[in-house]
Amino acid sequence: MLLELAAASGVAQVQQSDRATLIAQANAARAAQDFKRAIAILEPARTANPNDVEILRLLGTSYAFDRRYDDAIATLIRARDLAPDDLDVRAALARAYLWSGRRGEAQVELAAIKARDPGNADAALLHRQLESPAPGKEAGDAPVRRRGAAMWSEVSGVTLASGASRTWWTIGGSAYTQIGARTSISGEVEREARQSRVDTHLQARIDQQFSPHLRGYLAVGGTPDADFREKWSVRGGVEVDVVKGVTLLADARHADYGSVAITAFEPGARVTVASIRTAVTVHMINLWDERDTHRTGWSGRIDSEVGRGILLFAGAATYPDTEAGITRRMRSVFGGVAVPVSRATTLRLTVDHDDRVNSYRRTGGTLGLQIRF
C-alpha cells in the first residue's frame, strides 16, 4: 500500500512538472505573439487537464488573439463555470465577446466583475472600450475593424389617399472609416424612386467621442433637383452617459425644401439593461413646420441581443413628417433582425409600415448587408 501511495505521488509530481513546463512554453509563445504555437501547446494540456482553469484561460485567450472567437468563448465559458469568482477569466471572456462583436454579453461579464471588485483595473479598461462606438486599439488588444461599408435595398407597396396603388424602390450604400482614435467619418448615398419621381440624397457625417461618457456627431446632406426630399439639411446631436445604463440624447435638424424650411429638436434617452442584453430608446419630437407651427410627436425603439450576436429590434412612432415642403402626421411601426453571417459581415432584414395622414399608406421590406474591414 505504501508503495502504491508513493507511486501515485510520483506520478502527480511528474504531471505537475509537465504542466508547469507546458504553461511556461505557452507563455513564451504568447510573449512572442506566436498564438498558433501557444494553442498547439495548450490544446494537449487541456486534454490532459480538462478542469484546469489556468490552462483553459490561457488557451481561451490564445484563441481570441488568433481570432478564433467561437473557440475562445466556449473555452472561457468552461473556465468561468469552473471558477465563477476568477475575475481574470471573466475579463478574458468579456474581451472575447467584445472582439467578436457580442457587446451585450461583454456587458454582462463586465457587470459581474464590477459587482465583485468595483475598482478592478480590467473593468475600467473594458468599460472604456464598451462605451466607445468604435474603440481604437488598446495595449494588448486584438486588432479591431476601423472601416466598414453597408448597402441596402427596399421595396414598398403604397396605397395613395386617392386609392391608387404604387410600388416604390429605394437602394443605398454607405461607408465609414476612423481617422483617429476617437473620430470617424462616413458618407451615404440613397436613391428613392417613386414612379416617375426620383430623388438621390447625399450625406456626409463626422462622429466624435469627446470623453468616455460624451459623444457627438454633425451631418450635412443634400438632394440635387429634389422632388420630395429636402434640397439641403444639417443635423447634429450629442449623447451623454449620466449614470450606469442611462444615456441622455439630443438631436437637432434644419432642412430646406426650397419654398419652405423646417426645424426639429428631439430630446431623448436610452436605457440599457446589460443583464438581459436589451436597450430601450425613446425620443420626443418637436418640429416647427412650413407655417412655423410647433408640432410634436414621439418615437420608441427596443433592441435585444438574443445570443450569438443576433439582434432583434422593433419600434413605433407618431410624428410630424415633411415631404415636398408639406408636413403631415406620420404613424409608423417597424421590426427586424440583424444576423452576423461571419466575423465581419452582418445581414439585416427590416419590415415597416407607415401611415401618412391624408397622403399614403406604405408597407415595405428592406434587406441590408454590413461589412467591417
Rank of each mutant, 00 (worst) to 15 (best):
R57E: 09
L98M: 11
A150I: 06
S186T: 05
D70A: 07
T281D: 04
A38V: 07
A115C: 03
D355G: 07
K231S: 07
A83D: 15
Y63F: 14
D289M: 03
E290I: 04
A324V: 02
D352M: 13
A94L: 01
A74W: 00
T200V: 11
A7T: 13
P133T: 04
G216P: 13
A83Y: 09
A79N: 12
I310G: 01
A40L: 11
R68C: 00
G60N: 10
E105C: 00
E138D: 13
V144Q: 07
P133V: 05
W288V: 12
S184G: 10
F35R: 04
I302G: 04
H254Y: 14
A96H: 01
A175Q: 12
V273L: 15
A92G: 12
R57Q: 14
Q209R: 15
E43F: 05
D251M: 06
R46A: 13
F228E: 05
N120R: 06
R103L: 04
A26D: 10
E190K: 13
R191A: 08
L160C: 02
I371F: 15
I276M: 11
S211C: 02
E154L: 08
T75V: 09
L312S: 01
H353G: 08
V89M: 09
R166E: 15
W288E: 11
G172D: 03
A226L: 02
M151Q: 09
G60Q: 10
T47N: 11
A94V: 02
G336Q: 09
W169R: 08
A8R: 14
I55L: 06
T247W: 06
R19P: 10
A112F: 01
P224W: 03
L125A: 14
D352F: 15
G307K: 05
P212V: 09
D207N: 14
G172R: 05
A79R: 11
S153H: 09
G336L: 08
T363C: 08
A264L: 08
V306F: 07
L160D: 08
T318P: 01
S162I: 00
W168I: 02
G180W: 05
I262M: 07
L160G: 05
G237I: 08
A72E: 01
G307L: 07
W152S: 14
R78S: 09
I310S: 00
V155S: 08
N27H: 12
A269Y: 06
G335M: 10
R328W: 02
F334R: 11
R229P: 00
R46N: 11
K231V: 01
K137G: 01
D225G: 03
I39M: 08
S132E: 10
E190F: 02
A38R: 08
D71T: 01
V53W: 12
L93S: 04
Q107H: 10
Q25H: 09
L59R: 03
G60P: 10
V306A: 06
Q370V: 14
E266N: 15
K36H: 13
I77A: 02
A255M: 04
D199R: 05
S17V: 09
D117F: 12
G101F: 00
L311H: 00
R348E: 12
S342D: 06
G364V: 09
T183M: 10
D256H: 12
G268S: 12
